[in-house]
Design a binder for these strands. Structure first.
Lengths: 290, 290
DNA sequence: TACTTCGTGCAACAAATGTTTCATGGTCGA
DNA sequence: TCGACCATGAAACATTTGTTGCACGAAGTA
């Protein structure tokens, strides 16, 4: 047998898991889920908690290439050793090349995005949520990469207001929806540089129809922010990388949904429970187990 | 003897340290300095490393008020248990009502999400990107709220690899796509608790087909992470609010796309330029001004 | 059906663990 | 100087640990 390129013992375990006998899969899952206890408590203890035979642990270890449980546990222990957590403090940002250039790219990206989130002003989000709460109907627009954010917002809002939320362009040409905007409704437009014509058209349609316009954008001077009742700003360019970041826009969308939900009070909660019950009944989800 | 108000076993140790016999002080200091090894390795091992007698550890434990070394180690183990992640230690979450309750909700949410991002491990993302780079074809799966992340990933990857990236279920029933998985291809599955059957099915299909499986999930024990070649973890539950947060998953997706792009080198860059040129020609974008 | 293989639980095994006892050597006070 | 006391290391102890051999039963094959 050939060693398949060492990495983390946990990933080795996961890789081998599906090809293992049933009982070994169970204990394997148990170990993966409780790896801290696996390193600290005894094999027999674990077996008792997992409801399995102690021997299964030894067999599991051997099945994935270790000489025994002791060796597997030693590997898990080393993998968990806190010394290698590498705090973000004094990380050298000098090297831009070499084997770890990509790792540095990712870390920088994540840090930059993390730094951008707290800079998002909360007050406008709350006000926009109030506007959504009052709206008879909610339209959501987003194109290109912003489409994903629009769809998430659509999904979350629909969980507790199914009949009143609609994604522009979901059920036909955009123009059909644009023509349906009415006073008393709210239109959310998401976009950043470079701005698409379609999103600007949607914003203008909302404005002309007298609907409440909520713009989620990277700049107050974005074309679809013109005439908007609420402008929610995020930093799209804050992160390095080849493409603007949507993390901020997504965070805004999620907060917007959360506040709107909390404004909905008991009624919204009931609706959400109904929706979840329906999904559970359709057995959409994998049942949880110990 | 009077118990001096329990706190952490380590602090108990430090307090009692000066009044202990010389050899016990040495051992005590060793334990305090290497508490991780103290919880994982055996008493005799520690004694060998510390250059002390095994019995000294038992005596130390009794000297601080424990019944024996086992009990001390158990206390240390519990004190180290990672489940108590709770990073926002003493943050007052008391005020949940009042006029600014919603603003506080948003601020907390954003802060929590910002804190979660730097905790995402970068190395696995880079490795996964390499797998994507090598893949002849890339499939992307995500259901319910994860659909939005899946679509963003699909969009960004398609910018520079248009013919080789496909969203599962985009052009017909899912099962059709699941059956098309092949060795040499890569399948990305995105999901978190509660897990959908559909995503688990996709993961299993990928495994069976011998395709490289990349799971973006909230837990290493997620069902679709079983057998995965790469598991990218984010914290879905870290943020307050009525729904798990997708910010982490989105950040991972963006980083994944960015690194894959950078691995693509000149060819990828050319492709991206072509795509952008085409979009510009179709006058998708609003022309920039001042 | 008969045979084989494989997964699984049980129980016995040797090794290792934490604990205790004992002998030694040192320190302090009378 | 003597004796009481305590710290300390080595060895013996009972217990617990991880392991392995064995038997039973299910699944697959000829």
């Amino acid at each position: 047998m050939v060693e398949p390129a060492k990495s983390s013992p946990l990933s080795e375990l996961r890789i081998a898991l599906p090809s293992l006998p049933m009982r070994l899969q169970e204990v394997g899952r148990f170990v993966a889920a409780n790896d801290y206890d696996a390193t600290t408590r005894s094999m027999r203890d674990l077996a008792a908690v997992a409801g399995a035979d102690p021997a299964a642990f030894t067999r599991l270890a051997k099945a994935i290439g270790y000489s025994g449980w002791d060796e597997l546990r030693a590997a898990l222990t080393e993998a968990r050793r806190p010394s290698q957590i590498a705090p973000f403090s004094g990380r050298a940002k000098s090297r831009r090349h070499g084997p770890n250039a990509d790792v540095a790219l990712v870390t920088d990206k994540l840090e930059a995005e993390a730094a951008g989130l707290p800079r998002i002003p909360a007050q406008p989000i709350v006000e926009a949520a109030r506007a959504l709460h009052d709206a008879k109907r909610i339209w959501i627009t987003g194109y290109r990469s912003c489409r994903s954010v629009a769809e998430l917002l659509n999904y979350e809002l629909r969980l507790f207001r199914p009949e009143q939320v609609q994604l522009v362009g979901a059920s036909g040409p955009d123009d059909l929806d644009l023509g349906a905007f009415q006073p008393g409704e709210a239109v959310i437009v998401i976009g950043f540089l470079p701005y698409t014509h379609a999103s600007v058209r949607a914003a203008q349609a909302a404005y002309r129809a007298g609907a409440a316009l909520i713009a989620i954008a990277d700049s107050p001077s974005a074309p679809m922010a013109e005439g908007a009742d609420h402008v929610l700003l995020f930093e799209a360019a804050s992160s390095p990388g080849f493409f603007p970041s949507l993390t901020g826009a997504l965070a805004i969308a999620q907060s917007l949904a959360a506040v709107t939900f909390s404004l909905g009070g008991t009624a919204a909660k009931k609706r959400l429970e109904n929706t979840e019950a329906r999904l559970a009944a359709a057995s959409t989800y994998v049942s949880e187990k110990g």
